[in-house]
Amino acid sequence: MNIFRFLGDMTHLISILILLLKIYATKSCSGISLKTQELYALVFLARYLDLFTDFISVYNSVMKVVFIASSLAIVWCMRRHRVVRRSYDKELDTFRHYFLVAACLALALLVQEKFTFLEVLWAFSIYLEAVAILPQLVLLQRSGNVDNLTGQYVFFLGAYRAFYILNWIYRYFTETHFSRWISCVSGLVQTALYADFFYYYFISWKNNSKLQLPA
């Protein structure tokens, strides 16, 4: 464990707490893409199958349970909670995310570290996480004004993988047998997708103005 990875995990946790706060405090999920939340739930379920087979550390197991439980809770809330689901922007959240799932599954079958069930699912979860934010970014552009909590949620979500990239650079230079090119390439793509959001987020922060994404 190094500081970059710890900061990355904490940033990821903060983004989830911000989303839970927004939904719980405002009893609304306007501006949040249910499809992105479903993709994240799938990412965690596919990646953390080893939760019961390989014990790495208490921290590792606890965080996996937190990520799986929170992502499923958010999906449940947006689909079933009688008050929250009324504020879901159903007509704006129209990204065909099943294509993302199919494409990532196909890619995982072609490119993975070892052609085994767990490795294919692990690669699938890495590829899917890289593109899972797309429905959310499209929804933000369509819905125009972004409320603060949603903006902060997306910002921390983008920042977490940027910390992981620093973690991989650090591990590359400090560990001998360290090769995670699948994660590194996907992580770079994932962080690059946030580039324009980060730009507009910085502009809105500098001008102390409302975050506006160009349609």
Binding site: D9, H12, D54, I56, M63, K64, E113, W122, E175
Partner: peptide, 10 residues
Amino acid sequence: AKEQSTKDEL
């Protein structure tokens, strides 16, 4: 390092 080391991340 053992194989597991590449999967010790979240």
